[in-house]
Simulated scan of single mutants.
Amino acid sequence: MSRVTVVGAGVVGLSVAHELARAGHRVSVVADRAAADSVSGVAAAIWFPHDVDHSVTVLESAAVTYRRLAELAEDPRTGVSLRGGTVLSRRPGPDTSWTRAVPHTEPARPDGLPEGASGIRCTVPLVETGAYLAWLRETVTGLGVRFRAAEVTSIAELSRQDDAEALVVAAGLRSAALLGDDDVSFPIRGQVVRLANPGLTDWITDDDNPGGLTYVVPRRHDVVCGGTGNVGSWDERVDPEVEAAILERVTALVPALAGQPVLSRAAGLRPGRAGVRVEPVAGHDRPVFACYGHGGAGFTLSWGDAARVAAMLGPAGS
């Protein structure tokens, strides 16, 4: 079997490790943060290609991931379920290209929508991040994947310490610096507050809300309420004023949330880039592959892009 090291243990890195191990490679994952401590653990993790371009390649990966997550939803241990909800738009001619990756969509009934808004109803996978990331790590460990906790400061240094025959860089925001990427990569700060669930099942997203990005994503035991999209901010602290503004927007959108107790709160940095990068990277002493720049769509593109990386490497021994 060939030896492959994956840099990064978020949802993308773990998905890549899974697909490579399934293809027969001997895989190691090296990262300084566990998935739950990365932005993957902060995400509302509802399927939607957010903060990425809607290119043909991106939507193909989104469709592959949709199908895989829909299959996983049949196993309650994964923490994946299929949930109905509404994508709101408050502007004329909204981009609906993402609907090509969804089996069925329909216009939302105007009653109940904010004044002047339109909506698209659909059913998409929703990932309970705590359960899913734990299940995914347990699954890849069962496939023989090994984990090492370390900060990777350069690919050259890793190459000197590692006997892998190939490297995959899936380290989110740090990937560009590791690979000397000249394209613009940047943080997109996201903040959420998680409320007790008063019995909600449907999700709703409102990217065009006049007060800022707004979404309500009910899970089994809480409701993830957001959010923010502060491009260029490296601040991972929870801001009380931002939280108050989020709560004001979500309760206006979903009045049933008013007065619900706060269960937890978090902030994280989405790995933004001019475009998702999944390709071989020349100039190294062994094959190196990039898989990063997923913006707010790490869960949405994870399985599709992991399959693309596995196809580039081919089966073990090839």
Rank of each mutant, 00 (worst) to 15 (best):
R109P: 00
A306W: 10
R121F: 04
L173E: 08
D208Q: 10
L301T: 10
S89I: 02
L113P: 02
G275M: 06
G84I: 02
V124A: 14
V184Q: 08
Q191P: 07
T96Y: 08
G272M: 07
G130S: 13
G295D: 05
G112K: 06
A274C: 08
D183T: 12
L20G: 07
M1F: 11
V4R: 12
E248N: 09
H294D: 00
D183S: 11
V124H: 06
Y132L: 05
G211N: 11
V64C: 13
D51M: 10
L133H: 10
A310C: 10
R22M: 11
A149N: 13
A171P: 00
A170H: 06
T65N: 08
A45E: 08
D208R: 14
Y132T: 02
S2N: 14
D51V: 04
T141K: 12
G119Y: 13
Q260Y: 14
G304Q: 12
E157Q: 13
I120E: 09
A297K: 04
E71L: 12
D181E: 15
G232N: 09
G229T: 08
S15A: 15
D202I: 05
A306P: 00
A131L: 15
A21C: 13
H294L: 01
A258W: 05
T99A: 15
L263A: 00
E74T: 11
A9Y: 00
T86L: 03
A274T: 15
L179E: 13
A45V: 07
E106A: 15
G259W: 02
R26T: 14
F299S: 01
Y66V: 06
L14W: 00
P271L: 09
G180E: 12
L82N: 03
Q260L: 06
A17F: 02
R249T: 02
G41F: 12
R148D: 11
L301V: 01
V124S: 14
G79Y: 11
A164H: 10
L14A: 14
G144L: 01
S233Q: 01
A274E: 15
P261H: 12
A44T: 10
A101R: 08
A63I: 02
R277S: 09
S159T: 15
R77P: 02
P210K: 01
A258I: 02
A171N: 02
P76D: 04
L257Y: 10
V169M: 09
P110E: 04
G317W: 01
V12R: 07
A23I: 05
R219G: 08
V276C: 05
T99Q: 13
L69N: 04
L178T: 03
P271G: 03
G268S: 04
W98I: 11
T105K: 07
D202T: 14
E60P: 02
A43I: 03
A23D: 15
L59S: 08
A297H: 00
A36F: 05
A245V: 08
D183V: 14
A267Y: 14
A297M: 02
H50Q: 11
V29D: 05
T205Y: 10
D162Q: 08
S318D: 15
L88H: 05
A45T: 06
V276A: 09
V4I: 15
D222W: 02
V168M: 04
F289H: 12
